[in-house]
């Protein structure tokens, strides 16, 4: 069986859930190998983690020549790793950065590229959701090694015993690839909540919060949810851009999405329309968000949300 490379999604060596989702998909396509680009110190821990999800090999690429630059060195490293291997596919978790890596890699390898897949079948057929979630597209790569970026939540992680044989790979990064430099990086403070794109429940607030996200935050915590926002809320400076859901923010596809004080503009819907269940609270009965809800409450979020949060706490009680 041909190998399938899976780029490990991690923060400082702590493996993140999309990695396991991609390993599950990789097992449909061939023999999964995890590719860890990071600090060598973390290699053993990473190998232990991915072995439990079926990784047969774990390629470790020391990132000391890669961190601090943009995507070009990552693309070079993956190109050198792929050289001479019989690969069935290369899978990367979909993120802005990984899509750019995939784009450069596709040109280097002469490969076809599919981005933002929400599913990949055993024959390599990918499913994508386009036009603000109003169309589903099935596609296949026809040239070269298929390079596919896959959105979070596209598959359930599956535990499986993999050999997880660690192989250290040395790559040479060109000076040209290091031309764009990260001069300064201030990590975002942890919210203590699930990550927006990975959360099973997302509670969002818009302009209708009037800037008071207290009721939204409290409900999110009662549900163990991530907090999201409309662009109007972000543009008003109430939350940082990382919370924005929509065309120019995050795309989320949780089990439950709750839109509070959000009108439901097409650009917002583009980021949440594929959620399994959608609920909205809005003062205006004619708000377009109500066209796509499974359940809606016409009312003031400042009274409805605290009452709901209280009921949830009581039920848990």
């Amino acid at each position: 069986m041909s190998e399938v490379l899976v780029l490990v999604d991690h923060v400082a060596g702590t493996v993140k859930k999309p990695t396991y989702e991609l390993l599950a998909i990789a097992r449909r396509l061939g023999e999964p190998s995890a590719v860890f680009i990071g600090g060598v110190d973390a290699a053993e821990a990473v190998a232990d983690a991915v072995r439990g999800y079926g990784a047969e090999k774990v390629y470790v690429i020391d990132d000391s020549d890669i961190v601090g630059y943009l995507v070009a060195p990552m693309a070079e490293a993956l190109q050198q790793l792929a050289a001479g291997k019989d690969l069935a596919a290369i899978l990367l978790p979909s993120s802005a950065q990984n899509k750019e890596i995939a784009g450069r890699l596709a040109i280097k390898l002469g490969s076809g590229l599919i981005t933002d897949a929400v599913d990949v079948a055993a024959d390599g057929t990918t499913i994508q959701s386009v036009f603000a979630g109003s169309y589903t597209v099935a596609a296949q790569v026809t040239t070269g090694i298929p390079i596919i970026t896959v959105k979070p939540n596209s598959a359930a992680p599956q535990e499986a015993d993999g050999a997880g044989v660690v192989e250290h790979v040395t790559v040479t990064i060109s000076d040209a690839a290091k031309a764009a430099r990260v001069e300064d990086s201030r990590p975002r403070a942890a919210t203590g909540r699930p990550e927006l794109t990975e959360a099973a429940v997302v509670v969002s607030g818009g302009r209708g919060t009037g800037g008071d996200f207290g009721p939204v935050d409290a409900l999110a915590d009662a549900l163990g949810a991530a907090v999201g926002a409309s662009r109007a809320a972000v543009d008003s400076g109430w939350l940082s851009h990382t919370f924005q859901v929509g065309q120019t923010g995050k795309t989320v596809s949780p089990q439950l999405y709750m839109a509070n004080g959000i009108s439901g503009a097409i650009q917002h819907r583009a980021g949440m329309q594929t959620s399994k269940t959608i609920v909205a609270v809005n003062k205006d009965p004619d708000a377009p968000i109500f066209d796509i809800v499974d359940f809606g409450v016409v009312g003031d979020l400042h009274t409805v949300l605290p009452a709901l949060t209280a009921q949830i706490s009581r039920r848990k009680g």
Binding site: A106, S111, G112, L113, I114, T125, S129, G133, S134, Y135, T136, V137, A138, A139, Q140, V141, T142, T143, G144, Q273, I278, P285, F290, D291, I292, V293, D294, F295, G296, V297, V298, G299, D300, T303, V304
Partner: peptide, 23 residues
Amino acid sequence: ASRTTVTSTTARPPRTVGEIVKD
């Protein structure tokens, strides 16, 4: 010359509007 081929495009059925209640 495309290195990918689209095998189908399907319009998602519009979401059926659920219950809407007034608070």
